[in-house]
Design a protein around this nucleic acid. Structure first.
Length: 257
DNA sequence: ATGACACGTCAAACGTGA
């Protein structure tokens, strides 16, 4: 089974690329972030036509997450995280798909840091970590994936020194991510490729992609039950090179059935 | 240190992203 995550940076502008990607690379499950569309305007028909069912949590202009599946209806477990009833941003959706609990997340960017946006990021990470602990405790096979907006280590950035003042690389962000991993999650891509240069995001400007001046911020975290089933993991670099592509590339894992 | 680009909203710049 192939599961993918893709920050599409606007489902409106990205629909042709999204459909081409689904058609050509056929992920069984696809977690999407940054729909930037209100709930009613999700292009369900076009996605259904390719054999996918979908659940999503939209929001006007910003954020928005979705789980697509062609291996059975995604059964929604929750949208949003506990811990802040005031939080209206669409950044988390969770479903059971083909026997796996899948959490799809779009973690806040947090810039400029320090400041209120960074405070929101750190509070959101705390809420995520609290929820993740419960997921592990359930002993279900769980995948926690999406745009974490965290560069975990210096080797996950083309020029780490350029990111020292950035919320994606701030010590507090990296520590919160490390704390999450320490609960018992496995970073699937790093697990299989410990020393490789792997990026998932490249700026639109300065030919960042052709220079491979990127960062690794889209991650797949696996619960222990799933680690023995992990066959392969990678980044769909070709998709980032397509016309009108997102600034992120899809990331995927392959699990034994 | 700054800005390069892209997207959505809205119909001109501006907020946001990373």
């Amino acid at each position: 089974m192939k599961i993918a995550t893709y920050n599409i940076n606007g489902i409106n502008a990205r629909l042709p690329v999204l459909l081409r990607w689904l058609e050509e690379q056929q992920p069984d499950v696809a977690c999407l972030q940054e729909l930037k569309k209100q709930q009613e305007d999700f292009p369900l028909e076009a996605i259904n036509n390719l054999g996918y069912e979908a659940i999503w949590h939209g929001q006007k202009s910003w954020n928005g997450v979705a789980i697509l599946s062609r291996v059975g209806t995604p059964v929604e477990i929750r949208r949003g995280l506990d811990g802040d009833p005031e939080d209206v941003q669409s950044r988390y959706i969770e479903a059971d798909v083909a026997g796996i609990r899948i959490g799809c997340l779009y973690l806040p960017n947090g810039n400029p840091a320090p400041g209120p946006k960074f405070d929101y990021k750190l509070a959101w990470m705390q809420r995520l970590n609290d929820h993740a602990k419960g997921l592990l405790k359930s002993k279900k096979p769980v995948v926690l994936t999406g745009d974490f907006n965290v560069i975990p280590t210096p080797k996950d950035a083309y020029k780490p020194e350029r990111w020292t003042g950035d919320a994606l690389f701030f010590p507090e962000s990296r520590e919160a991510f490390a704390k999450l991993l320490k609960q018992g999650w496995t970073d699937a891509v790093r697990h299989l490729h410990p020393d490789e240069t792997i990026y998932t995001y490249w700026d639109y400007f300065r030919n960042a992609f052709s220079r491979n001046a990127g960062i690794r911020i889209d991650h797949f975290l696996l619960s222990d039950e799933l680690v023995p089933r992990l066959k392969a993991a990678g980044v769909a670099l070709d998709v980032r090179g397509w016309e009108k592509s997102s600034d992120h590339a899809p990331v995927w894992i392959e699990l034994k059935d």
